[in-house]
Amino acid sequence: MTPVTAKSLFAKGLIVLLMIITLLPFLSMLSAALAPSGSYPNGLQWPADPQWSNFVKAFEVAHMDQLLLSSTLIVLGVVPISVLISTMAGYGLAKLTTKKYKWLYLVFVFGLTLPFEAVITPLYYEVRAMGLLNTRFAIILPLIGLYMPFSVYWMRAHFLNVPNDLSEAAQLDGATRWQEFMRVQVPLARPAIMSLTILLFLWTWNQFLLPVVLVQDPLNRTMAGALGAFQGQWGTDVPLLCAGALLILAPTIAIFLAFQRQFVAALMQGAVKG
């Protein structure tokens, strides 16, 4: 066996091992979700009589239809605005900022170091002072601001890799800065924009801390945030709780699988200069 073949087999084996490790928790949750309601599943074992009705019951008792609507409204309020602002800001920092104002970029880098937990208390009092407590805007507006550092950093990294010759060519053709941005830069940034959209969707959909702290009504939270109330009500019914958790995870997994090519393309794009 040649060294190249040995390395290839080792790499494939490592990937398979990582896949198994990643899938084991989901398989354990699935087997637990199919156990009879009210029972206590013991480890990873497939039930003799799978209770698929647990998913239907979890959907009904958790009011998943209303949670889906609430999560969708929050995602639609956060993701498009965040992507729009960060795309323009990333382009401005990469192409329009002079050396005198390069320090502005450090503000966004500093924002990457701030965890949500560090700002949740002042954020609570700020939202309450604005009269937005217990509304979906209490989730939407803070998330837009909290996502800005990473989003701007992500888009700036893309625009830095775009050759300046393209901008100069567009300007020689008579294009304004806005026309150049819309007709040249944005089409080239499509993979980065798509991947950022996917990331922000996943983070918003799975946001747990802010909805729990800022919104009391579970039906106005994200689906992940409502899981806390669902757990408090049905925490003793492990199969039902696992079924509800899998229903909450299903949309994020579906979105990632549907757009994984765009996500990988944006990651690979960062490895290519010029």
Rank of each mutant, 00 (worst) to 15 (best):
H63T: 06
T197R: 09
Y40I: 06
I120C: 10
V75M: 08
G228V: 01
N206I: 08
F10I: 14
I74K: 06
Y124M: 10
I85K: 00
V186A: 11
I139H: 00
L133H: 12
L104Q: 14
F259V: 11
T222H: 04
A189L: 13
N220W: 03
G270E: 07
M88C: 15
P187Y: 02
V16C: 03
Q45D: 03
W52V: 08
L18F: 09
L210R: 04
F263L: 01
G270S: 13
D217N: 11
I140D: 05
F108T: 14
K100D: 12
L18A: 12
L249R: 00
Q171C: 10
K99L: 08
C242V: 02
Q207P: 05
L172C: 13
A169V: 09
L34C: 01
L23G: 01
L188E: 12
V127C: 04
P191I: 09
I248T: 12
S8H: 07
R136N: 07
L112F: 04
M130T: 00
I20C: 07
T222Q: 02
A224W: 00
T98G: 15
L188V: 13
I139K: 00
Y124A: 10
Q185S: 14
P211D: 04
E117I: 13
Q179Y: 10
A58L: 14
A243F: 12
P251V: 06
I15T: 05
Y125R: 03
K57P: 05
L166H: 11
T236V: 03
V272M: 06
R261F: 02
L69R: 09
A138N: 06
L249I: 04
S195N: 03
N164E: 08
T87E: 02
F208C: 00
L9Y: 06
A157Y: 09
M29H: 12
V152T: 02
L44E: 02
S37I: 02
G274P: 15
L9T: 07
A89F: 15
G92R: 07
T252I: 02
V152I: 13
F150S: 04
T97N: 10
A48P: 13
F59E: 03
W234I: 00
N206Q: 07
V186N: 08
T22K: 02
I253E: 01
Q51N: 11
P122E: 02
N54M: 07
H158S: 05
P211M: 01
D165C: 07
L247P: 15
I85C: 09
F259A: 11
L67Y: 00
A175C: 15
A226D: 03
I139S: 01
P36A: 03
G92D: 10
Y91H: 09
A118L: 07
S82G: 07
L24I: 06
V79E: 04
L133W: 05
G43T: 10
P191C: 07
R156A: 10
Y40L: 12
A229K: 03
L93R: 14
N134L: 10
R156K: 14
P50E: 01
Q171A: 08
A169G: 06
A157H: 11
P50L: 00
T98D: 15
S28M: 08
Y125F: 11
L34I: 00
A32P: 08
L249H: 07
L84R: 12
G228K: 04
V213S: 05
P211K: 01
T135D: 03
K95Q: 13
L172P: 05
I255D: 01
A226Y: 09
